[in-house]
Amino acid sequence: MNPVSSHAQMGIDALRAMATPLADFRIMPFGAEALDARLASGGLRAGALHEATALTCSLVDDAAATLFFAGIAVREARLASAPVLWVSCRNDLYAPGLEQAGLASADVIHAQPRDDAALLAVVEDAVRDGTPAAVVAEASKVSMVATRRLQFAAAEADMPVLLLRRHRGRDRDPLCEPSAAWTRWRIASAPSERLGVAGVGRPRWLVELARQRGGEGFSLIVEGCDATGRLAVPAVPGHRTAETAGSVRRAAA
């Protein structure tokens, strides 16, 4: 072949790669059309760092954020048939509750480091090891540099790293701190649909995407995880006012 033309061919390929807006990476769709359509690439990027936090510092919102990530981890664990590593300094996670979101006892390995520094080291080790299907970490103090490291490691290993940012104070929003995460979520629990009888319906969450790369933020009411970790979008939104598609209720970080 003519060396000049092959050189030109390479250049064209490189240019085409540069011009393509989306990189070629694996996507984890939520399986709910309303949610996936608003994400830039039709789902969450698998090899990336994703952050979520409770909308307020109340415990119920924290529980909703926990299960939101648990659902993502479950679907990833089923796909890769590998365990999920759950790293947390606290021990109030209740395994039977996780199992009801699909994360059975056989699917989770728990690690309980002493502090956030050890936690980040463990997460990075685990991601570089490549065995787990996903890593879920609960931390409150994570620096920009640490998130960038995690993002690089996750992209290299093609493994989702789900970082649950805890509130450090009543008035401090964890998402105010800068971060290299691919997406940043705020999750709150929302009133469930009133049933005809006196009972609690399927849980609903207010899911607010504060920031995503290559896309807009939004907020949406979804129905919580079922036994396989799947979310659903309610047929008739209970609170139309809460759903403000395409814009963000709160200032994104």
């Binding site: 048939s81 365990p83 395994a95 006892s105 390995i109 685990a126 065995t131 299907a133």
Partner: peptide, 28 residues
Amino acid sequence: ESTLRDPARLVDVVAGRIGPGAVFRIAP
């Protein structure tokens, strides 16, 4: 027809970092 990926290597790595007592599963 592989079953679950063997977590032994991961467990060793994490246990080497934070001690073997801090890595566990939760059993019923």
